[in-house]
């Protein structure tokens, strides 16, 4: 089945069996291994990507359902040389330790900040509740998101 979609802002086309998980399509034929697999059943959130702007678990989405839709992965947030404020804050505030939850965590945070520019702590925690982290205790992640929201409000470029 031929599938056309928008991936990180660019049109992409691939030929895939339709029920193949978006996660496997991203990590395989689409060549983006930033999206991680921690459980394969919607619990850990390390596979989180944006599907038309909302965060979803790429391990539960079949690629066939992505026809004509827009996907954003961690690779779409920024590059090594041009980090987004959110990415920069995760580094500076200690929001990433082992880093395996980080791509999914960043995507959930991105979804939040696009809708809510000035989230309070409970709102941040709720937005990240589908992303399990075993390293940080979450506090520094919450700090990272709060700080990024501040920077964005001060006009930092995404």
């Amino acid at each position: 089945m031929k599938i056309s979609l928008t991936l990180n802002g660019a049109p992409r086309e691939l030929d895939s069996a339709p029920l193949v998980r978006l996660l496997d399509a991203l990590r395989g034929p689409l060549g983006l291994t930033g999206t991680k697999e921690g459980c394969g059943e919607g619990e850990c959130g390390s596979c989180t990507v944006l599907l038309d702007g909302d965060p979803v678990n790429a391990c539960l989405v079949p690629i066939g359902q992505c026809e004509g839709r827009a996907i954003t992965t961690v690779e779409g947030l920024g590059e090594m040389a041009h980090l987004s404020p959110l990415q920069r804050c995760f580094i500076d505030e200690g929001g990433a330790q082992c880093g395996i939850c980080t791509p999914g965590m960043l995507i959930s945070a991105e979804a939040l900040l696009r809708r809510v520019p000035d989230p309070d702590e409970p709102t941040i925690r709720e937005a990240l509740a589908g992303n399990l982290c075993r390293c940080t205790g979450y506090q520094r992640i919450v700090e990272s998101v709060r700080r990024a929201a501040e920077l964005l409000r001060e006009g930092a470029a995404r």
């Binding site: 983006l32 291994t33 930033g34 999206t35 992965t73 961690v74 690779e75 947030l77 920024g78 590059e79 090594m80 040389a81 980090l83 990415q87 920069r88 995760f90 580094i91 500076d92 200690g94 990433a96 330790q97 880093g99 980080t102 791509p103 960043l106």
Partner: peptide
Amino acid sequence: HGSPVEIPRPSVGVSVPRVDGAAKVTGE
């Protein structure tokens, strides 16, 4: 990478940003 912050010397006692951070936050 990715940090505009100038790291003072000596660096011990300073929260130097994680060196592997940029690779981790970009999926690289």
